[in-house]
Amino acid sequence: MVTRGFTGRPQRTEGAVPPGQYVTSDFPVLTAGGTQQLPTRAWELVVTDGTTERTYAWASLHDLGVVDLTTDIHCVTHWSKLGTTWQGVPVAAVLEDAGMADEPYALATSYGGYTTNVLVEDLVDHDAIVAVGYEGGPIPAEHGGPVRLLVPHLYLWKSAKWLRGIRVMPEDELGFWENAGYHHRGDPFLEQRYYGD
C-alpha cells in the first residue's frame, strides 16, 4: 500500500536500524511517572534468588570491575540512537558474585516502583550491564542515573532506570509495561513491540 504524497526524508536510515525505527541524535526521555532524584550515596542494589540476598552500594558494585560498552539503543516509540557509550558492570558478573541460583527468569525493579521482566539468558549471554556512566560522565537522573540497567539488544523499556533490585526466579513475572500490553521479551530486530507480536 502506497501513501500518496509521502516521500520520506532524503537521508534515509533503513538497514542501519531494526524495522520500524528511525535514527535520532537526541536522547528522548520516556518514563512511566516522574524522574527519581536519587543521590549516589543513597543508592543500593539488592540481588536475590529468594534464598540468598546480596546488597551492593556504589563502591562494592565498582569493585566487580567496570567495563566500557559502545552500543545502539532502541526505544519501542520508534527512535534508535546509534553508537552510545556507557560504563558499567556486566550483569553476569553481578549475578555470579552474588552467588545466585541458576534460574531462567529475572525481574528488575526500580526506585519509584517500576518493574520489568527479562530472561536471565538476555542478561548474561549478551552485553547487559548495570550501568554507572554515560558518555564518560554520570548518567543524568532523567536517563536513570545514578545507576540503571542496560540491556541494549532489547527495547529500552527493559533497561530499568534507577535500578534497585534484580530478582532471579523459576517462573516469569510480568513487569509494568508488559502488564500494559507490551511484549514480554521485546527484541527490536524481531519487532516484538506489543503483546502477541
Binding site: D26, F27, P28, A32, G33, G34
Partner: peptide, 25 residues
C-alpha cells in the same frame, strides 16, 4: 511531574506521557 509530586501528589495518582524528540541529549 516534579512540581506536582513536590506539592504532595501521590505518585500513584500521576500518569505521564512524554513525546517528541528534542529532549536532553
Amino acid at each position: 511531574a516534579r512540581e506536582l509530586t513536590d506539592a504532595g501528589l501521590d505518585a500513584d495518582l500521576l500518569r505521564t506521557e512524554r513525546f517528541g524528540v528534542g529532549g536532553p541529549k
